[in-house]
Design a protein around this nucleic acid. Sequence first.
DNA 1: GTATCATTCAAACGTTCGTTTGAATTCTTC
DNA 2: GAAGAATTCAAACGAACGTTTGAATGATAC
Lengths: 233, 233
Amino acid sequence: MNLRAIKPQHETRRRILDAAEELFMQHGFEGASMRLLTAKAGVNLAAVNYHFGSKDALIEAVFQRRLDPMNAARLAELDRLEAAAAGEPLSPEAIIRAFIGESLAMIEDGRNGGRNFVRLLGRTYTEPAKPIRTLIGRMYASTMERFKAAFARALPDLPSDELFWRMHFMFGTLSYTLAATDTVQLIAGFKPEDRHDSRALQERLVQFLTAGLLAPLPGSSRGSTTSSVRKAA
Amino acid sequence: MNLRAIKPQHETRRRILDAAEELFMQHGFEGASMRLLTAKAGVNLAAVNYHFGSKDALIEAVFQRRLDPMNAARLAELDRLEAAAAGEPLSPEAIIRAFIGESLAMIEDGRNGGRNFVRLLGRTYTEPAKPIRTLIGRMYASTMERFKAAFARALPDLPSDELFWRMHFMFGTLSYTLAATDTVQLIAGFKPEDRHDSRALQERLVQFLTAGLLAPLPGSSRGSTTSSVRKAA
DNA sequence: GTATCATTCAAACGTTCGTTTGAATTCTTC
DNA sequence: GAAGAATTCAAACGAACGTTTGAATGATAC
């Protein structure tokens, strides 16, 4: 039960997790080999198997370390908002901010490696390997349930099916934005340097997602803003 | 120049491309080995290197086969719309339909393997391997340029920076929807069987994306639809 | 039918992968 | 400082990887 020895005791684990986070982001799970990974961490090749058991277990540990606190922070922010609202339903925009705020805050956190993780996380939602996807799904389950309920209360007129899809779309936008910013340049002239300004990015995302979530339903023709809705093909 | 021998002449190539498309989608580029791939295609292990040169060249060929016609169809649809509009700027919704329609149409095309490719494509936008990303970017460059110009003409009041970001968001939503539908189930109760109805999915996507694209700007407070815009945190 | 080309095939190449091993070293406890 | 547990280390393991080879087989042209 020595106290001052706790930190160096787990330093090898931490070094491995940090290196894994960065290399998984850069090269993917299969592309980042144990030798490359342990070399970057400055530890012996066998250290991963000793401390984590296997590479797959290391992958799981990388997500555990960040995802649990991240979703806890999301839920805490939702709790805070609901407590302040005193029974009134929250605005959709406020719920969206509670969900994406924590992710985007980590982008600016360059020191603690949050940026690496957020980009890694964004990519992992579409990871082909099934165990990883189910792992992510399990870690998100309770959080998604809470936010779904919050959205449903904020938008009582939106059918449940539509809410599912729109949450799906919103999550996709966030995921892609986190993963692909400063990597893909599909649109010529796009300046990914702006990503550093995560405040501005957050405002842009909130505007886009809120509008999408509140979009008129396909059937009901309560007019949108200015678009001349004309059917094509 | 024999005519009746053309088809069986390229059948090995086609079989390899089909198998690669499916296995790359299921297991990723690194996860789908040459032995698994050639076994599924029913060809010899050396056939890939003989016909394509290398595994990387095969990956490129998989995208070439589908992406070029796909983007050509998008541009053709855009041409058709602009010709019919006779100088008038198109509606944003019509442009969105022109862009996503071709992708979604391929989802229903189960026979020709279009579904496999579309899902593979959606995942590849966030692929860690750099050569693949630059390949995709190159194949999309001219198409994105055309659509960017069309959107700019349809939305003359939207600043260029904002248009970039909103196209980025829109592309992300489409990408994630194509890649993750029926694979990820982050939201409990979500029924991915609906993906088979690509008409309904297209309408949902068009509604969401159009609303996001036309969202009010962060600064200007020209009221949106019904949301009680309340700043949080 | 024979020469010529393209394609297929089984086998092996060298490399890299994740993991294991057992001794060496460091840290903890008394 | 000795005993014992925890950790690190160099080395090797078998398996799987993408690729290459050279002979066998097929189709094409004269």
